[in-house]
């Protein structure tokens, strides 16, 4: 009798505890206690066209920009390169060749991406060109020089923020369709901070002493795709280009 009373108290307690703990703890957490970034995310902005503020044109939505201070601190030579890139963007944009988009451009192509989170490795799977980034946690970058399209990503948790340090880039990728560019000396630091179940604040610090006079930042929210039965599909750019006359 006493035992069955105890059991029903326990059962009732569990029922009560479950919703309380969900309400009291605003961030979903993985089994290791870190914020759980798992899921399918998407940037909703026009940074794919231009990370700086811009008005609309045919086929190009306007945008308030994602760069802190609304300015990219190019050296004079690098600013000239950007202008030439922009003028010839239809031919020069690596996206038109279906090349891997680089970082952080992969984040805001306009297509969704999926985070698969484990304590040792966080993999980011992108719909565009089936791009993959493996973020190896708490391990050093390999010794360079190495030139990857997507760089070499090493992650760590800074309290509840995932910090990803990315180096070993090539100089072939752009930041957007407007010819904003970098060299192989690019160093990217990304910060992924879960704000609540369905929003990440994504902040990026960019350094490249060959191209910029100082470091600069961009930031944007990432939204969870909550669509029913949501899954990544494929966007096989290479096949689309093959089919062109």
């Amino acid at each position: 009798m006493r035992e069955s009373l105890l059991l029903s108290i326990v059962a009732a307690a569990l029922v009560v505890i479950a919703p309380l703990s969900a309400a009291g703890q605003s961030l979903p957490r993985a089994s290791d206690g870190k914020p759980d970034l798992s899921g399918i995310w998407q940037a909703v902005n026009s940074a794919a066209w231009n990370i700086l503020p811009h008005g609309a044109e045919a086929g190009v939505p306007g945008g308030l920009g994602v760069v802190e201070g609304n300015e990219i601190p190019y050296t004079p030579a690098a600013a000239a390169t950007q202008r030439a890139n922009y003028a010839n963007r239809a031919k020069l944009d690596p996206e038109t060749q279906c090349y891997l988009p680089g970082v952080p451009r992969a984040t805001y192509t306009g297509l969704p991406f999926q985070i698969v989170q484990t304590p040792e490795q966080i993999s980011m799977l992108y719909e565009f060109d089936h791009t993959v980034r493996n973020v190896f946690m708490n391990s050093p970058h390999p010794k360079g020089p190495i030139e990857f399209w997507m760089g070499d990503s090493r992650g760590r948790w800074d309290a509840d923020t995932l910090v990803v340090d990315v180096v070993h880039f090539n100089d072939q990728t752009w930041f957007d369709r407007s010819g904003n560019h970098h060299s192989e000396a690019l160093h990217v630091i990304e910060r992924y901070s879960l704000l609540d179940r369905d929003h990440i604040n994504y902040e990026v610090t960019i350094e490249d002493p060959k191209v910029f006079t100082r470091q600069w930042k961009m930031s944007m929210p990432l939204y969870r795709r909550v669509d029913r039965d949501m899954r990544l599909l494929d966007y096989e750019c290479v096949a689309f280009n093959e089919a062109l006359p």
Partner: peptide
């Protein structure tokens, strides 16, 4: 492996399956 899913990352052509 994550709760509720198996993920395969292939080296060849960086393809993946969730």
């Amino acid at each position: 492996q994550v709760p509720g899913a198996v993920v395969i990352l292939y080296e060849s052509n960086h393809s993946y399956r969730f």
